[in-house]
Computed example of a mutant assay.
Amino acid sequence: MELVFDELDLVDIETAINEGGKIWYNPVLNRLKDKIKDFYTSGDTSKCCYCGKLFQGEFRMVIDIEHVLPQAHFASERFEIQNLNVACKRCNMLIKKDDLTFLINPAIANNYYDSNHYKIIHPNLDIYSDHLILKTFRDGDSIFNKYVVKTKDKGLFTYGYFHLEKTEVDTINNSQGIKGNKGLTDKIRGAIRVRLYQLLVKI
């Protein structure tokens, strides 16, 4: 099953584009946005397309519709189905935002949906578990996350780019009643951060 836009969706998209301004935030798109979220969050295994955090029981407002290629740089891909998925606010707003260092060549001009253009695991072009596996263990109220990095390219890059080591530490700290700290890694973006992890993480 795949996400498909019907005639009514296309009319709403055309209306939003023709009205201009902040196209993605036009209220005429609210029904379309609900459709996208419903598609990706239906079922018990709905999750953030980058960190794998489960959305089960989450309030819909904490789930973002994600444009893999950011709208700020790739407006033409705003409504391209292969460019859409859902992400947690941590991965989407705190980390990725409008950054382009996850691309092999940020000046990518065509053939946007070739997996080889992406350093990260693309949620619609790649199979996540081929590169990264999230193992979650629960002991009563304590939850522990551990990522298994399977590939030195996309797996390792995604692990570093989205600070996934920090989510592992945070789940352990939280289980012990230790409040999380924003560390230096929160301020190191993109390829530099990944290079640090290449020095620290062995596959």
Results as ranks from 00 to 15, higher is better:
residue 25 Y to W: 04
residue 26 N to C: 00
residue 202 K to E: 02
residue 98 D to Q: 09
residue 60 R to V: 05
residue 78 R to P: 00
residue 167 T to K: 07
residue 132 L to I: 12
residue 7 E to Q: 14
residue 87 A to M: 09
residue 158 T to V: 05
residue 92 N to C: 03
residue 94 L to H: 13
residue 190 G to A: 06
residue 69 L to M: 10
residue 194 V to T: 13
residue 68 V to Y: 13
residue 1 M to T: 07
residue 83 N to L: 04
residue 187 K to H: 14
residue 173 N to V: 00
residue 160 G to N: 08
residue 166 K to P: 00
residue 112 Y to V: 00
residue 36 I to F: 07
residue 116 N to G: 13
residue 20 G to Y: 00
residue 74 F to K: 04
residue 168 E to T: 11
residue 25 Y to V: 01
residue 6 D to L: 09
residue 156 L to V: 05
residue 110 N to T: 10
residue 59 F to R: 12
residue 144 F to L: 15
residue 78 R to G: 04
residue 140 G to C: 15
residue 197 Y to L: 15
residue 139 D to V: 14
residue 133 I to S: 12
residue 15 T to E: 06
residue 57 G to W: 00
residue 202 K to C: 01
residue 171 T to P: 08
residue 186 D to L: 09
residue 142 S to E: 14
residue 177 G to Y: 07
residue 56 Q to P: 00
residue 132 L to M: 10
residue 190 G to E: 06
residue 195 R to M: 03
residue 195 R to Y: 02
residue 188 I to P: 08
residue 22 K to N: 13
residue 23 I to Q: 02
residue 162 F to I: 05
residue 48 C to K: 06
residue 145 N to E: 03
residue 15 T to W: 03
residue 63 I to Y: 08
residue 151 T to G: 13
residue 87 A to N: 07
residue 23 I to G: 02
residue 43 G to H: 06
residue 201 V to F: 07
residue 4 V to T: 10
residue 81 I to R: 05
residue 31 R to D: 13
residue 108 I to K: 15
residue 38 D to K: 11
residue 36 I to L: 03
residue 178 I to Y: 14
residue 95 I to E: 11
residue 17 I to F: 00
residue 59 F to L: 08
residue 160 G to H: 05
residue 26 N to E: 01
residue 86 V to P: 10
residue 137 F to W: 08
residue 161 Y to F: 12
residue 143 I to A: 02
residue 76 S to Y: 02
residue 37 K to D: 05
residue 164 L to P: 10
residue 56 Q to N: 04
residue 178 I to G: 13
residue 52 G to L: 09
residue 154 K to S: 10
residue 89 K to P: 05
residue 96 K to V: 04
residue 196 L to G: 02
residue 199 L to D: 08
residue 54 L to H: 02
residue 79 F to M: 06
residue 93 M to H: 03
residue 39 F to D: 02
residue 59 F to N: 12
